[in-house]
């Protein structure tokens, strides 16, 4: 009895979760400039408007550069931290790890203004670089959370075997450890990339004359007649992120099957 109610609740829950998102494609292909029902006819006009917007292309390129740089830097730093945290014990470990994880527990606006303060006081110029720094900072804790479980699942004896057989630590890392934790590295890169691509507040504070994609979208939201093309852009982003997610999910499942692990979803790890 209870289970029936819960099942019905779950259906409503998922519908509620997705309802707003489903409006995106609906209005992206709708002819009218005004976002309201009833729909007035099919058009691809809003997509072609996007195609011609040079500011959008510049913002997309900025965002891609920032997301690539931050995800690689964050994953690199997180590899070091996760490896140290899981495999070694050393004095000051807990406070040091805590300090690195703090950005996860801070509102983004605090990180945004504190970095802005540094830039103001140091007389630096706001640029793509300042955004990369901010995004790396918030991505590192997420990357550590992912990589930590990769290191925990790692079979230590593989590395010991490699060391016993005379490989150096560096080569052991590259040829034994890294391939074994590769799924973790890939999902860390992917998640950091997505976080950076989507992040608005820090980028809003730290972007100078070079806006990121969310900052560009924000600037467009003020003009009602730009809304349909923003909807078209949102649709493209939605399709891209669903594809990206699906691919990473397939890769993860294939890996899980190969390693013979029990598959319990794992997306939260």
């Amino acid at each position: 009895m209870m289970k029936k109610y819960l099942g019905a609740f779950m259906v409503v829950f998922v519908l509620f979760l997705y309802a707003p998102t489903l409006l995106l494609p609906l209005f992206a292909f709708n002819e009218s400039t005004i976002i309201s029902f009833p729909l007035s006819g099919f058009t691809l006009n809003w997509f072609s408007v996007l195609w011609q917007a040079e500011a959008l292309q510049a913002a997309t390129i900025n965002s891609l550069i920032i997301a690539s740089a931050s995800s690689v830097t964050a994953t690199g730093l997180a590899l070091l931290a996760a490896s140290a945290g899981v495999r070694y014990s050393f004095p000051g470990k807990t406070p040091m790890m805590a300090a690195i994880m703090v950005p996860m527990f801070l509102p983004e606006i605090i990180i945004g203004v504190s970095l802005l303060t540094v830039v103001l006081l140091a007389g630096l110029n706001l640029s793509i670089f300042t955004i990369i720094m901010g995004h790396t900072l918030i991505c590192v804790p997420f990357a550590i959370a992912i990589l930590r479980s990769s290191f925990q699942q790692l079979d230590q004896s593989m590395q010991e075997a490699s060391l016993d057989l005379g490989e150096s630590r560096a080569v052991t890392f590259l040829r034994v450890t890294l391939p074994l934790i590769m799924p973790g590295v890939v999902s860390s890169l992917l998640i950091s990339f997505t976080i950076s691509l989507d992040e608005f507040v820090i980028a809003f504070f730290l972007s100078g004359t070079e806006p990121t994609l969310p900052v560009y979208i924000w600037s467009q939201l003020r003009f009602p007649r730009k809304i349909p093309s923003v909807m078209a852009l949102g649709t493209i982003l939605l399709v891209l992120s669903v594809c990206l997610l699906a691919v990473s999910e397939i890769v993860r499942r294939r890996n899980a099957r190969r390693l013979g692990q029990q598959d319990t979803g794992g997306a939260w790890q």
Partner: peptide, 18 residues
């Protein structure tokens, strides 16, 4: 379960601003 988790995670990765 994996499908449900996947379903719940998708909105995670769609643009917050949107």
């Amino acid at each position: 379960k994996p499908l449900l988790v996947f379903l719940i995670t998708i909105p995670f990765w769609t643009s917050y601003l949107m």
